[in-house]
Design a protein around this nucleic acid. Sequence first.
DNA 1: AGTTAAGTGGAACGACCTACTCCAGATATC
DNA 2: GATATCTGGAGTAGGTCGTTCCACTTAACT
Lengths: 237, 237
Amino acid sequence: MTTTSNASERPLRADAARNREKILAAAATVFAARGLDVVFDDIAVAADVGVATVYRRFPDKDSLVWALFENAIDEIADLVRHANEMANSWDGFVWFLEEALGRLCANRGLREVIMGAPYAEERMMAAKTRLVPAMMALVERAQRDGFLRPDVVEADIPVLELMISSLSGGANDVAPDLWRRYLRIMLDGLMTERRAPSTLPPSPPEAVVIEAIRASRCGSASRTSESSPVAPEVPTS
Amino acid sequence: MTTTSNASERPLRADAARNREKILAAAATVFAARGLDVVFDDIAVAADVGVATVYRRFPDKDSLVWALFENAIDEIADLVRHANEMANSWDGFVWFLEEALGRLCANRGLREVIMGAPYAEERMMAAKTRLVPAMMALVERAQRDGFLRPDVVEADIPVLELMISSLSGGANDVAPDLWRRYLRIMLDGLMTERRAPSTLPPSPPEAVVIEAIRASRCGSASRTSESSPVAPEVPTS
DNA sequence: AGTTAAGTGGAACGACCTACTCCAGATATC
DNA sequence: GATATCTGGAGTAGGTCGTTCCACTTAACT
């Protein structure tokens, strides 16, 4: 799925290349489940290699993060582009938010890099600014067609994404689609007038769900199993 | 403002009582600005006493947190009660959210305890469940009057509060009212139909603001001044 | 098959950080 | 002025995290 060994630099021995992939896969899982603030040791045991191997392949977390999430922004850029090509501009707007949030909510690491975690910062930032024009187009098109309220600006979008994705992570395990409920509310607040009488998609949050969200919000009792299997990249439709 | 020495247990020497108050005041400031995850040492220097004094008065963080935020929930209960007594149920609903979020966004520590930080957990939890009926009444009244969409439940309220207050903390210094913008959007999505053509209150987020939110979201470059003066309790109208 | 360069694991190290205590000296109280 | 109370801040013990070192294994090439 991710970069096979870059042939331009040096051949990298067969087993080493294999290990590199194991590390990347393990890191993807661990990052997705627990965010970027995990120690190299955890990645090593998840990949079933020694720590030194991880360090040898990826001298710092920046390079590992970058190797994993280099394409993430471009994928989002593709989403925006595709959304801009949809016939109905509001449908495009909604579709983009659903797709982006699906990814962001399912992958805590992705959320953190995109929201500005201090890891591959400059590179991520650069990639992000490249995305702004397309986002502006998306917003303005929906506004021009009279769907999206005119007092919204492009800069609101990441903030909205940040807010909505902030409750996932804890709710992931117990109610992975909860974010859709609040996205629906936000969308109803974002459009110029209610068109159809929309209903909130996932069932209202149970007490358990709220509890899970809370528990995640602070490093309290989360030291049960370190091999929590989590959907790796694109689990939402 | 906060508990003067509890006369029922033991008189506590004059200087000791004075120090206790200094500690509470300092902790309030520090907690509000940097959340509950501060070391006792920081509170001690802010209070201008030794660490031992802090430990002597408050053996663990739970007792300090509880001493500071014991009334917080009751204050919120008062808000709900007052909101329920307002003539217009929708206005009451909106007023409550504004008041509650104003407090939550201005005080990071408050936000953390209420949202379930692992400190005075059981006690806070107990206090919170006592609040549920009034919240249900608030929601149901607004629904009965046809203002609030019927598919919202009481459990949605804390989630909404959590989401909206999640972006404050970083934005506090640079745009302390930004949350109002997104509350407006959420409210427009929560009501059954748009009544007046509402406009989003605070100006759209500048790049600086977004940057500040991001920076706060991860402990990166936040080691400048530890004496950041922050509004202590109830700064929003 | 043997030589060699590349790769490996995991113990070990040092630089933090954080919670908490100890006690000689200061201070209120009567 | 006697004494019980309180104080500060140095000191400790314990934990975490990033990183390296080196005796050993393994692939690659002849």
